[in-house]
């Protein structure tokens, strides 16, 4: 009984800890730039999963467009850069922001780095982790206008049936499935949605946002 109370307290405490870390950002530079368009360039991958950048790219257009900005077609941009000899994302991130922005006619450039994209198996459970850095730079000056950092973790829930052995079996199977085919996409979507939420860590609504004033 006592152990249940302790667990509950820990859960409540950690929930509050999660909320306490939100600090308002200085958006004065971002607002002054009054952006209309955002160019998402290929993603730098620091994880060991070689597919992560491409898969991640499929999740990023929606939250930015829905925030009211023109988002350049991510697949087309990627292919054009490859044709230009810039298939290496690190090279693109080190290239001049102003020149990139000029080439595509964009107001700004969004640089994303995948820090983690992995599934770790620890004692009967697998934790899937997605960790990302986001930076928006001004296309005219190259100056940083906004940045965010997100980490999202997922563990399969192991509900208890009362039968210890059966529960153990379910946990092992869940962990094995998660490890064999971890689904990172919902985590990436969650990270993006949070990163672009405003008010919150995200950017203020852009020119196409319907509810620009009321948001």
């Amino acid at each position: 009984m006592i152990s249940h109370r302790v667990i509950l307290l820990v859960l409540i405490a950690s929930a509050f800890a999660g909320c306490a870390t939100v600090t308002p950002k200085d958006l004065s530079k971002f607002n002054a730039a009054s952006l209309h368009s955002i160019l998402v360039v290929p993603v730098v991958n620091e994880s060991l999963d070689v597919d992560a950048p491409d898969y991640f790219l499929s999740t990023i257009s929606l939250p930015i467009a829905e925030q009211g900005y023109y988002v350049f077609p991510v697949n087309m941009v990627k292919r054009i850069l490859e044709d230009e000899g810039l298939s290496d994302a690190g090279l693109v991130h080190n290239a001049s922001t102003e020149k990139l922005a000029k080439l595509f006619g964009s107001d700004s450039v969004l640089y994303i780095t995948i820090r983690r994209w992995d599934a770790q198996y620890i004692v009967l459970t697998t934790t899937v982790t997605v960790e990302l850095d986001y930076v928006i730079k001004d296309g005219k000056t190259g100056e940083e206008l906004w940045r965010d950092y997100r980490i999202v973790k997922y563990q399969p829930s192991n509900s208890s049936s009362g039968n210890g052995f059966a529960d153990l079996l379910v946990m092992v199977i869940n962990a094995a499935i998660t490890k064999a085919a971890p689904n990172y996409i919902p985590l990436a979507q969650q990270a993006n949605t949070t990163a672009f939420t405003y008010p919150g860590p995200g950017v203020p609504p852009g020119p196409y946002a319907k509810t620009k004033e009321s948001k």
């Binding site: 898969y55 790219l57 999740t59 929606l62 829905e66 196409y208």
Partner: peptide, 13 residues
């Protein structure tokens, strides 16, 4: 959503 996306995420993935 403001726009119609269909399953764009999944399709590109």
């Amino acid at each position: 959503n403001m726009y119609y996306w269909g399953n764009y995420n999944t399709d590109l993935y």
